[in-house]
Amino acid sequence: MKWRRHRLAEALAGRGVHVGHVPISAAVAPGSPASPEAVAETHWRLHAARGLHEVVLGDLATVKAAISTL
Rank of each mutant, 00 (worst) to 15 (best):
K2Y: 00
K2C: 05
W3F: 07
H6A: 01
R7H: 03
A9D: 05
A11C: 03
A13V: 01
A13L: 03
G14T: 06
G14P: 05
G16D: 12
V17W: 08
V17P: 00
H18I: 07
G20V: 00
G20H: 02
H21G: 02
V22S: 00
V22M: 07
V22N: 01
P23C: 09
P23R: 02
A26N: 06
A26S: 05
V28A: 13
A29C: 12
A29Y: 09
P30I: 03
G31Q: 11
S32W: 05
S32H: 04
P33M: 04
P33G: 00
P36W: 07
E37F: 04
A38V: 06
V39Y: 08
A40R: 09
E41H: 10
T42L: 11
H43V: 15
L46N: 10
L46I: 10
H47E: 06
R50M: 04
G51D: 14
L52K: 01
L52G: 01
H53P: 03
V55Q: 02
V55R: 07
V56L: 15
L57A: 13
L57Q: 12
L57N: 12
D59Y: 07
L60T: 11
T62L: 10
T62K: 05
T62Y: 04
V63G: 03
V63P: 01
I67P: 00
I67Y: 09
S68C: 14
S68W: 14
T69M: 14
T69Y: 07
T69V: 14
L70R: 15
L70S: 14
